[in-house]
Structure formats: C-alpha cells, structure tokens
Design a protein around this nucleic acid. Structure first.
Lengths: 240, 240
DNA sequence: CGAGCAATTGACGTAGTTCAACTGGAGTGG
DNA sequence: CCACTCCAGTTGAACTACGTCAATTGCTCG
C-alpha cells in the first residue's frame, strides 16, 4: 500500500545512459548484474522512500527488481503475534527481487532516506533469455546470498550477545569499506540491530558497552562506532 | 580425504537409464533438476557412505553435484573452538553441490547409511550451456534454498526451545510426508537436532518431554515420534 | 550378561529477558 | 534563546529460560 503511494509520488523516468559511469564495462561486455541492469536502464524508474516506508510487502507479487542507489533497506518478516525478524540489511549497490518466487517472501522497508531504481521483472527476464550469461550471474548472486544466510545462521545459533554484536559490526564495516581506526556509520537503530541478531535492545546496548569498556570500539554517539581494534573483534566473533 | 576414500571404495558406474522410472518426464521434456540429472546419468556414479563418514569437506573444491537416493546427510560448519552448526539436513531426493562456488562452504556428512549419485560438475555445466531451461531450474532450486534458510533463521532467532523443536518436527514431517497420527522416523540423534536448532541436547530432550506431556506427540523410542496433534504443534511453532 | 554410548532427568548457575527508571539529543514552540 | 516534549538509547534490578554438570536410564551390540 505505502509502497504504491510512495513509488507513484516519487516516480521519475531514468534516461538511458544516465547511470553509466566509466569503468563499469570490460571490453564492451557487462561484468556484474548491476551492469546488466544498466543495459536496461531505460526501463528503470528511480524512486525514493522515507524512513520506515514499505518498499514492498511480504506476499505481494514480486514483479520488480530493485537496485539501491543510496540509503539502507531492511528485509523483515513479521509474525502473527508481533515478533519481527530482520533477515538482512541492504546497502547501496545491493539488489533485491531476484528470487525466483511469485511473491515476495519478506517485507522491504526503508531504514533511512532510500533512493533506488526499480526495473520491471519481465524486462529483466527478456534480457536473461537473450543473454545466457546473465542467468549465471544471478546464480552467483543467489549463491552468495545463501552463503551470507548460512553465515548469519551460525552467528545467531552459536554466538553469545557480545560475539553477535562484534560479528555485526565487522560485517557492516566490511560492506562499507571501513577499516581499523576509522568511523563506521550505522544507519539503523538499536532495535533493528536487536531484531537482526535475535536479541533485545537492552542486550545490544549492554554488549556495545562491554566492547567499549574493553577498548575495542569507541562510540561518539549512538549512530557512530570507531573500530579501535579490528583484530580483537575478529577473535571474539569466532570464538571467546 | 575420507570422501575420496569412501567414494573410491564404493564406486559403481550407473548404466544409462537405470534410474529412469516412469512418469518422470512430461511429453518427453525433463521437468525437474533431478530429471535433468537423469539425462546425464551415464556420467553419474553411485556411491555409499556409512554413518558419520564425510561426503565432502568444507574448503574442498566443489566439482561434483550430489543426488541423495536414500539416507540422510547433514551439512555442517565447524569453528576453531569445536562448536558445530548443522545448516541443513538433506533427505532422499535432495540435491547438493549446486552453489556457484569454487569451494564447498560446508561439510557434508552421512547421518546414517547414505546412497547417492555423484555427477561431475563439468558434465552438468555442459548440459546447462546446451539447455537454457536448466539454469532457470537451478535458480528455482537456489531460491527455495534461500527461503528455507530464511525460515530457519527466524526459528533460531525468534523462537524458544519448545517452539524450535515443534517447528523442526513439523518440517521433517512435511518433507517426509508424515501426517497427523502417523509415525515420523528421525534418522538423526538428539545432538544433531540440538546443533541444528542452536540448543543443547538436554534442552532438546526437555522440550520433547514437554511436547509429550502436553499430548502433542507420542515417543515410542528416541528415533520415532507419532504426531498426535499437528494443529497444536503448528500453533506453537509460530507463536506461544 | 555387561560394556558402551545415547537419551533422559535432576540440581544448580548464568546469560539474556523483562520491566522500570533515567539520560541525552533532536525537534518544537513560546 | 531557553523550555518543553518526545523518543531512542542506556543503565539497574529482578526474573527466567536455557546451559552446565552430574547422575541415571535404557538401548545396542558384542
């Protein structure tokens, strides 16, 4: 519902080539899925979503593919009794909607101000039929999704609170190219982190405080974390 | 290592057509991935593994695709400090090795006596290049893997012990076509179940005892569970 | 029958939840 | 500009579900 409204409100046709920055194609051939999507960019529509707006909802027909330009998206699942689980956070450059499913298995919501390009599924499928390589790219994409899910499954089933938070910070840092000594900006709130890690807000807070007290991180304010000791966080995230 | 030994010991060339039972093909076209694999069955080798034998190990090059004929396989991940997480159990008819990865991300071990057919990855890739439909089948396969992983992620991050065990029993029953009042045979031990659900053996036992005391199940012996009240188990598995 | 191991049960400790109070920064209005 | 609200974040105290450790049962296989 919200999605349809927001999408309509913010629609804006993307002109072919307007997102073709240099260095994206190798000897004239697209090399990543995003590159392939750029080749059908004339069919893509740029949309914006405000904080907590629903991008697509669970059970809704999955007829679009989304590429995030900037902002953060959470993929979540709700239960009848109000529990929420955040399956994954999507960051700029990430894609969603590539699953071979009639309906979306999760709900996508904007964590902060999100800009994305929406491609119609059928345009992508036509491209996939014409270009055999593209399905292999999708296979790679889904494979790495599975690896990520398995990794996170391990975090949630085998690690304690502090280890989970350490793993989370390291993964976010890795995805956002933040290194030792640098500042990691967390776009999501504590509740989002908690629902992603299978903990409560309070426990996430306490774990962060512990990491702070151990000198592994510095927290200037709740949305920023400076990684003082990446090695220490790594050691923690796979043992302890 | 173990895999190579066992495989060699039990190798037996499958003659083309030896697994082509009736009703598998629709108007001459294969309809499932397994059907496609049958079309290259002359390249498949039947192998057997005994209890706890390693079928393939994490980090090993993934150059084969496996179809389980009978028996149960566990896909697991070990940590340096000895913790184990069982990502998934594979049952007869299931496939593994289809991920687009150079190396296996998990270790596959036989839970009980397992018979499988091993197809060389490159034979499959040749087939995939020749027949465009096959990649779409793989996409569907990986998509449902992702849905399963997400479902299990929810179980492990949001459910308590009794709910997790109820979810586990229901899913096994569903996969093995066991219905209300019927007997579910569990090939894996309590430790395996515990490592799959992120619990300890003792907690799994206690949860089973609770389900028994509530009259939802009857447990003639540790490997068998009779589902007395499927509805009750379902109610529990998504709320409580 | 007895060894050996998986499953179960009991007793106790603890990590994480729950509930409640407090803090602090962002936004609003006088 | 300060006072106010509002809400996210943090901390404290008590509770509880699960883990841990140890003892017991029960099955399987010599």
């Amino acid at each position: 519902m919200t999605m349809t409204l927001s999408a309509a409100r913010n629609e804006e046709i993307i002109h072919a080539g307007s997102f073709e920055s240099s260095g994206m194609f190798e000897n004239g051939e697209p090399v990543t899925l995003s590159d392939y999507l750029r080749t059908i960019s004339r069919t893509g529509v740029r949309v914006a979503f405000g904080r907590d707006e629903v991008i697509y909802a669970e059970e809704e027909p999955a007829d679009s593919i989304y590429r995030i330009i900037n902002g953060t998206v959470r993929l979540c699942r709700y239960t009848a009794d109000g529990r929420r689980h955040i399956v994954e956070f999507l960051l700029p450059g990430d894609l969603t909607g590539l699953l071979e499913c009639a309906d979306h298995p999760v709900t996508a919501e904007a964590v902060d101000e999100v800009h994305m390009i929406v491609y119609p599924r059928n345009a992508f499928d036509r491209l996939a039929s014409a270009e055999p390589n593209i399905r292999r790219r999708v296979l790679c994409h889904l494979s790495s999704n599975i690896l990520e899910a398995q990794r996170h499954l391990f975090v949630v089933s085998c690690q304690n609170a502090k280890e989970r938070v350490a793993s989370f910070l390291l993964r976010m840092a890795d995805r956002l190219d933040v290194f030792q000594g640098q500042r990691l900006d967390l776009p999501m709130g504590r509740q989002d982190i908690a629902d992603h890690l299978g903990l409560t807000v309070e426990t996430v807070c306490r774990a962060i405080t512990q990491l702070k007290d151990q000198g592994l991180i510095v927290v200037p304010n709740s949305g920023q974390v400076i990684l003082k000791n990446v090695r220490g966080l790594q050691d923690m995230s796979l043992a302890n």
